[in-house]
Design a protein around this nucleic acid. Structure first.
Lengths: 146, 146
DNA sequence: CACTCTTCCTACCAACTAAGTAGGAATACT
DNA sequence: AGTATTCCTACTTAGTTGGTAGGAAGAGTG
């Protein structure tokens, strides 16, 4: 599995939003966190991060507000957002074989069994990332497993 | 998980070698399979495949013989070679975070828990690919799980 | 030895993707 | 009007991937 910078940044930003709006808040924005403050606290290039936040909003994981006192907030509580939600929002499919989804690799002959391997791998990854919520990561709990 | 063309070709080639030398044989080569015949039967560019076969030999999964009546054969029986062996031979690590191994991502602050997620994913992938042998794939058996 | 066949090895090329930058338009508040 | 912020598009740069070319080295045959 290759975790791109985009996916990595997306997860870190979501965790930072969850921590900021759930933890302290009350510093003036009504729970909204600005992109600039996310970029600073997690050391992410700002203009790169803005594109990622846009993807997360389009996927329905974040809501945003423009203007002074604007910013971002989660649309759901952190225990209802999984790592898999975030990865799929910015990265598309979790498993690809040469750029194609795992189930249309087009094997023939002796290689036919490989499709099942990729599907099993995909399922194993999904089990982990779909059972780990942002809330679990923030409380430092070990990774859940089914 | 991204399966590159290189990894895909490597697995298909290994399966073809296993099938050819184990199944019929006795057509003159003493169980050796030529690169050209592998390239044809699995539709892989020959000169690209040669580099892959070289990696597999360096990793100790294949032995080779030059000259007329040369070719490739497995160094171990197909039920002692796993998909994971082949993937690691051509691709290095199974899981990388922005190019680095999963356990040295260098998170700080609220993102510290992510390392555990990547390690869990890595373990889940390894469980699948290290328990699936070439022999199992050739007999069309469903993927084993621990 | 000459010849042929095959693996071995290096260098190279084209296309794509990832990562990051720049600059402005739209929106919200004062 | 003015300011602060999100939104959106286009661009640059560097690295990787997939693939090609051309030969050198080894192994057998007559």
């Amino acid at each position: 599995m290759y975790v791109s910078a985009r996916s990595d940044y997306a997860l870190r930003a979501m965790l930072a939003v969850a921590a900021a709006s759930g933890g302290d808040g009350e510093d003036g924005g009504g729970g909204l966190v600005k992109a600039a403050s996310l970029a600073e606290v997690q050391d992410i290039p700002l203009s790169f991060l803005q594109g990622i936040l846009l993807d997360l909003r389009r996927a329905g994981l974040l809501l945003s507000h423009r203007g002074a006192d604007g910013g971002y907030a989660l649309t759901r509580p952190p225990d209802e957002i999984t790592v898999g939600d975030v990865l799929r929002a910015v990265g598309g499919s979790l498993t690809t074989v040469r750029g194609l989804p795992a189930d249309r690799a087009g094997y023939h002959g002796v290689a036919a069994g490989l499709t099942d391997v990729w599907l099993a791998v995909h399922g194993a990854i999904a089990t982990v990332v779909d059972h780990t919520t942002l809330a679990a990561l923030l409380t430092q709990a070990p990774v859940t497993r089914s």
